[in-house]
Design a protein around this nucleic acid. Structure first.
Length: 114
DNA sequence: GCAATGACCTGCT
DNA sequence: CAGCAGGCCATTG
């Protein structure tokens, strides 16, 4: 189990500081597989260590969250991000928002950079 | 043990 | 400008 791409993803997500969010592509890139963002979601879905891996800090490239697949519900995910001082912004015109309540994370201010 | 799918992203037509 | 297809590793049935 150790030394797998999946484990590397958990390590990156776990390194995300509070109040910051990372995108799947970014986590995948930091994990060493910029073209394997799909498996990042798979890894988080497996979530072998809940409470240790802040899956709610991982969002899409657009800043939207994962509707229906959140650990406890999209409403809970947005609530957690707000509780961590994460900046939320209304959806821009022209962008289809698939997030919770149509609120997107302000990647310009809260996107975690290595 | 084999086969198919999976919270995505990027590039090309 | 918009739509379509491909790519990668691991987990589950």
């Amino acid at each position: 189990m150790t030394g797998t791409f999946n484990e590397r993803v958990y390590d990156v997500v776990r390194r995300i500081p509070r109040g910051m969010v990372a995108t799947y592509g970014q986590v995948a890139a930091l994990a060493g597989r910029p073209r394997s963002a799909r498996f990042v979601g798979f890894a988080l879905h497996a979530n072998p260590e809940p409470g240790v891996i802040p899956c709610h800090r991982v969002v899409f490239r657009d800043g939207s969250l994962a509707p229906g697949f959140a650990f406890g519900g999209p409403d809970e995910q947005r609530r957690l991000l707000e509780g961590e001082d994460v900046a939320f912004v209304p959806p821009r015109d022209g962008s289809d928002n698939a997030g919770a309540e149509g609120w997107l994370v302000d990647l310009d201010r809260c996107q975690w950079r290595a």
